[in-house]
Amino acid sequence: MKIIRDATAGSGEKSDCTVTVRPSEQLKIDITGSSAAFFRETMIDEVKSVLEELGVTAGIIKVTDRGALPFCMKARVEAALRRGAEE
């Protein structure tokens, strides 16, 4: 899967997060928000696991967190990727 356009998923509600993806040659993962101080490394790994599952190798992935549990963050990453990918 390849990111070909900017796309967003999720929300700014509590226990959710907003994930934005943008096309890029490089892979860059940016994590901010309420859990970042506690789980940065874990969250990066979790994002990577979704990228791997969908075969995404490049793009800018930005997660703005408001306390999302792992299942939610992974779902929002997947949704943003699918929205930003080739049909």
């Binding site: 998923a9 549990l69 299942f71 939610c72 779902a75 929002r76 997947e78 949704a79």
Partner: peptide, 15 residues
């Protein structure tokens, strides 16, 4: 609809 479906899919895995 699309992101809800994906969220439900992950919830089924993890919750």
């Amino acid at each position: 609809k699309d992101e809800a479906r994906i969220l439900v899919k992950w919830a089924l895995r993890d919750v």
